[in-house]
Amino acid sequence: MVPKLICDDDMVDIYTPTTSDKDSLKVTIKLSVEKINTINRICASFGNNPEELINVLHETQNTLGYLPAEVQEIIAHNLKISAAQVYGVVTFYSYFTMVPRGDYPISVCMGTACYVRGAEKILEELKKELKIGIGETTPDQRFSISCLRCVGACGLAPVLMVGEKVYGRVAPDDVRKILEEYKNDNDEEYKCQQL
């Protein structure tokens, strides 16, 4: 399992670090030469300057969708810094992700208003329904869960977003219904992959 992300520094109580053995941490995803060239190009466009690390990571994630270990290693190599330092930055900012987001990325607002009005319960419900944690993606690549700081819709708290679509005043019971909306197309395929 890839180490998880923390969603927000003042929300630490909802994150429990998991114990992982080293084999499960070994990275198996392979990169195509094409992707490696893309990363090299991005690094070069920032002059391979280690001080531009955050910008390089930002641009790379925008292009590739996520930042798996191999990608970080190539960036470390190009910028002449250690992979540990790159990983340190990637895990520090909740914006960066090491797993591909799902086709329908779900974000739960963890701003104060939403939190007070039970965002945590919604998050729990989501985790239970999808059987994944924060920063993770379902095996069929359909859904992923992340947390957000305030999205500016406090009047609608608690707020949940699927892609760009905002759902307000969500109750834990609503979660299943919302998910159904996205499960319905290609329902058969979805079920097959779940097995």
């Binding site: 180490p3 923390i6 520094d9 630490v12 540990a84 330092q85 990983y87 340190g88 895990t91 520090f92």
Partner: peptide, 9 residues
């Protein structure tokens, strides 16, 4: 460069 602070909080 074997070690770095990772994660936050």
């Amino acid at each position: 460069g074997a070690l770095s602070a990772v994660n936050r909080g």
